[in-house]
Design a protein around this nucleic acid. Structure first.
Lengths: 259, 259
DNA sequence: CACTATTTGTCCGTATGTATG
DNA sequence: TCATACATACGGACAAATAGT
């Protein structure tokens, strides 16, 4: 019987020896991604080691190792004579936040999420931060690292740089209330927010904090807070697990008359 | 003299032996990213092989190989006795689009980008598409795959599913004009757009199309178009290279009185 | 002109990881 | 499981080019 074409040519072509990444890991990534994105569902049986090896043009040991890694990652279950079945369930456990306003940290986030302060320190600001906050080079800022949890699982990693506001802006206050409330208490009225949305791979720090592997895709939001006089007050670097957090928007009545 | 802290702790921590990726390649990636993003500029001299080796806790051979790869990639120039100088010029080949309206495909995108139609076919819609477009199961829709280029480099991958509008909605028309113009020409007035922003790893298809490796982080936007009668017309699946495309927003005057 | 320090280029030997049959 | 081949990574050693004293 001819082997079913479960995998596309692109998927097979993505596993190549010429890359500086082990073959077994390339194959592992292809399989894992396919399972995570629902291309292969819970309960389905993967091709056998030999079939996989032939499909992707590798040896049986290589395909075996890729499947073993999948098992170690808890994606599949392997049994002799029975094959490799998928145990991973696609369960969203997801928070969808509106992006149209600043509601995020108040209404939506407040529902079932908790925040944990990981670090708080007054540091010399990196050059990029000095530039965005319009500070002279090597100024001092308050750096805070925080994690946000949903159902006890971390899904957001924040690194914030705040211009010195006063001694009341400290770790204790950050642990208790939201940052926006804190700003207001310090007499800073936030007028505008500048946001850039992007994606990035998890670095070693974030990967550990969010319980991911290095390089895992993350939704990235870089946010600058301005006070009512248009002066930058704070820069926030957010990274979200895409399987647990998404942004939602509804845009209405687009321009009709033009072009 | 103590070694200058050119690299952050995060950067140094990203080069670890425990990962299934060669050390020299990890280091190469860190350096390349720093140069590409302007952290190290044209003409600057990189630390010597020995300094790099000590900074990142690897042997000189490893740091040397990373630098050699950088040279092969045309990012730096190496000379005995003189060191490694950066030849790559930092030009942010990046498109930053506003997200506040539907302007994207009209004003911003039209500037220096081009679109290429990769596939166009009438297909049986997947279940998920039928659900979002409120169609009976196994309905037929027009599926289009497109790529968007900036300076000849692909940065966006689109997969769209459109309810049957008529024979004028075809490959030829898609190649020429924008989809929104085409909708209007077909008598469909787009009233609202529903967007979900997230991140995902590149699958084999997209990786090939956007010239990336499998698993590379991408900014993902899933968009549903509704006509003025609130009926879903089209579902669009966008994936962007984060180094070439970002979304930008400015939010003003957040709620003051409440909580 | 040496002389020196720095930096890259090349080689060796060894140990471990990867991949095949 | 074994034998084999190749890639990766380390430490060390020495040669060759460069720049400054």
């Amino acid at each position: 019987m001819p082997v079913m074409s479960i995998f596309t040519g692109e998927e097979r072509a993505a596993v190549v020896a010429s890359q500086p990444v082990p073959l077994y890991h390339q194959l592992y990534c292809v399989l894992r991604l396919k399972i995570e994105q629902g291309g292969l569902r819970h309960g389905e049986v993967l091709p056998s080691e030999l079939e996989l090896a032939e499909l992707f043009g590798v040896s049986r040991i290589t395909s075996k190792r890729a499947l073993d890694e999948l098992e170690r990652a808890g994606m599949v279950s392997r049994r002799r004579g029975q094959g490799t079945t998928i145990t991973h369930r696609y369960e969203p456990k997801m928070l969808v936040a509106p992006l149209t306003s600043m509601l995020e940290s108040l209404a939506v986030m407040g529902k079932e999420t908790t925040v944990e302060l990981v670090e708080f320190e007054r540091v010399v600001a990196p050059d990029t931060i000095c530039t965005t906050l319009k500070l002279p080079p090597r100024s001092r800022v308050d750096r805070a690292v925080r994690l946000r949890f949903i159902d006890g699982d971390p899904f957001a990693h924040y690194v914030s740089f705040t211009i010195p506001l006063g001694s009341t802006f400290n770790a204790k206050a950050l642990r208790q209330g939201s940052r926006l409330e804190l700003f207001r208490a310090m007499g800073v009225e936030v007028g505008e927010i500048d946001q850039v949305l992007s994606a990035c791979g998890a670095d070693a720090f974030v990967a550990k904090a969010l319980n991911l592997t290095v390089g895992a895709p993350l939704l990235q939001v870089n946010r600058t807070y301005f006070d009512v006089r248009q002066r930058p007050v704070d820069h926030l670097h957010c990274r979200y697990r895409p399987d647990r957090f998404q942004y939602h928007m509804r845009l209405s009545a687009p321009l009709r008359g033009s072009r």
